[in-house]
């Protein structure tokens, strides 16, 4: 907190706004995890935090350190890149696992295996 006093006001306001927006989106996503009814609805909720939520906070962090150190700090791009690559993969794996389990149990909520298709692998 000692360094924040050196930050000019024009940078402090966007940093504060972006931090609040990002944290707010993460909170809304987690509330969605509580509130939505079925699993397939809930799987949409965390994407709020993983896309724009963490994006806003990382942008705020980049702005904060770039202005303070008077040079570009681009570390945060790495986290953004990892997030962009990894989140869809985990969500797809999880959705497929859930679909497979529901089909095993014969749940009526999910569409059946298409008739022409070979049996599900593994």
């Amino acid at each position: 907190m000692n360094q924040a006093a050196d930050l000019p006001l024009w940078a402090a306001l966007p940093v504060a706004a972006l931090v609040l927006l990002g944290a707010g989106l993460a909170l809304v996503g987690s509330i969605g995890l509580l509130k939505l009814r079925s699993f397939y609805d809930r799987i949409h909720a965390p994407t709020l935090g993983t896309t724009l939520g963490i994006g806003c906070v990382l942008l705020a962090s980049m702005l904060f350190f770039s202005v303070l150190q008077t040079r570009f700090v681009l570390h945060e791009i790495l986290i953004t890149a990892f997030m962009v690559v990894t989140t869809p993969v985990t969500l797809m794996l999880l959705a497929r696992a859930a679909l497979y389990r529901d089909r095993q149990e014969g749940s009526a909520e999910v569409p059946p295996v298409p008739p022409a298709a070979p049996p599900v692998k593994e």
Binding site: M1, A23, S30, F39, P46, G49, I54, H75, E76, M83
Partner: peptide, 30 residues
């Protein structure tokens, strides 16, 4: 169900990562 728990754990990881970045802004340390 188990998939709900895994999804919630994934959300928890993301929230923890965001929290750590916010900690970084607070302490001014990279």
């Amino acid at each position: 169900r188990a998939q709900d728990r895994v999804l919630a754990l994934d959300t928890m990881y993301v929230n923890a990562a965001i929290l750590l970045v916010v900690f970084g802004i607070r302490s001014g340390s990279i």
